[in-house]
Amino acid sequence: MKLATLRIDGTTAAVRVDDTTATVIDGYTDLGALLAADDWKSVAANATGPTVSLDDADYAPVVPAPGKMFCVGLNYASHIKEMGRDLPEYPTLFLKVADALTGPYDDVVVPDYAAGQLDWEAELAVVIGRKAYQVAAADADAHIAGYSVINDYTMRDYQYRTLQWDQGKNFEKSSGFGPWLDTDYELGSRIETRLDGEVMQASTTDDLVFKPAPLVEYISHIVTLNPGDVVITGTTGGVGHARKPARYIGDGRTVEVTVDGLGTVRNKTVVK
Rank of each mutant, 00 (worst) to 15 (best):
R194G: 03
T264C: 11
D119R: 12
R85T: 02
D166G: 02
L118C: 11
I191T: 07
V271E: 05
A100M: 11
G250F: 03
R156Q: 09
L87M: 14
V149T: 12
G116E: 15
A4R: 06
M69Q: 15
D19T: 04
I219E: 08
N170W: 04
T12D: 07
G84I: 06
V43G: 00
S189M: 10
L87Q: 12
T48V: 14
I128Y: 03
F94N: 04
L215W: 08
P61R: 01
Q117V: 00
G146K: 12
R247W: 13
T23K: 13
A44P: 09
D26G: 04
N46V: 03
P88R: 11
A44M: 08
D182T: 09
T193N: 14
A202Y: 08
H241E: 09
A60D: 08
K272C: 00
Q201E: 12
D38W: 06
V72N: 06
I144C: 06
I80Q: 12
V17R: 00
I150F: 07
T20H: 01
E186W: 01
T183M: 14
P111I: 00
L187S: 12
R247D: 08
L54R: 00
G197V: 08
I128P: 02
A13Q: 13
N46L: 13
P61K: 01
Y90G: 00
G103S: 11
V15T: 06
T12F: 10
A114Q: 11
S203I: 00
M155N: 10
A37D: 07
T204F: 04
E186A: 15
K272E: 06
D166S: 08
F70S: 05
D152G: 08
H79R: 13
A122S: 14
R16A: 02
T11D: 12
G67F: 04
T51F: 00
G234M: 09
P179W: 08
S203Y: 03
V135L: 10
T193M: 14
A60K: 03
E121I: 05
D139E: 15
A44D: 01
T11W: 04
D260T: 10
W180F: 15
L34T: 03
Y59H: 10
R194W: 02
V127G: 11
F177I: 04
